[in-house]
Amino acid sequence: MKSPDLSTTMQRGLNAIKALSGHEADGMRPGELAKSLDITQPQATAVIKNLIHAGFAERCPWDQSKVRLGPTMITLANSAQLAISQRAIQIEQDRKNFGATL
Rank of each mutant, 00 (worst) to 15 (best):
M1S: 15
M1D: 13
M1F: 14
K2V: 05
D5W: 05
L6H: 10
T8F: 00
T9P: 04
Q11V: 09
Q11C: 04
R12V: 07
R12L: 08
R12G: 09
G13H: 01
N15Q: 10
N15A: 10
I17G: 00
K18E: 09
K18I: 13
K18A: 12
A19T: 09
A19S: 13
A19D: 05
S21T: 14
G22H: 03
H23M: 05
H23E: 04
A25R: 13
D26L: 12
D26T: 15
G27M: 06
R29E: 06
P30H: 13
G31A: 15
E32N: 03
E32F: 05
E32P: 03
E32M: 07
S36D: 09
S36A: 15
D38S: 12
D38K: 10
D38Y: 01
Q41W: 08
Q41E: 15
P42G: 05
P42S: 01
V47M: 03
I48P: 00
I48W: 01
K49S: 11
N50W: 12
L51D: 01
L51A: 01
I52P: 10
H53T: 05
A54K: 14
G55F: 04
G55A: 08
F56C: 13
A57N: 00
E58H: 08
E58R: 04
R59H: 10
C60F: 08
C60G: 02
W62Q: 10
D63I: 09
Q64M: 13
K66M: 14
K66V: 14
K66H: 14
V67R: 00
V67E: 05
R68F: 00
R68K: 12
L69K: 02
P71Q: 14
P71K: 15
P71I: 11
P71A: 15
T72V: 11
T72N: 03
M73Y: 00
I74W: 10
I74H: 14
I74K: 12
I74Y: 11
A77M: 14
A77W: 05
A77F: 08
N78S: 08
A80L: 11
A80R: 07
Q81L: 10
L82M: 11
L82F: 07
A83Y: 04
A83I: 00
I84Q: 11
I84C: 03
S85G: 01
S85V: 08
S85K: 09
Q86T: 10
A88Y: 02
A88L: 12
I89G: 02
Q90H: 08
I91W: 03
I91G: 05
Q93A: 11
N97R: 15
A100N: 08
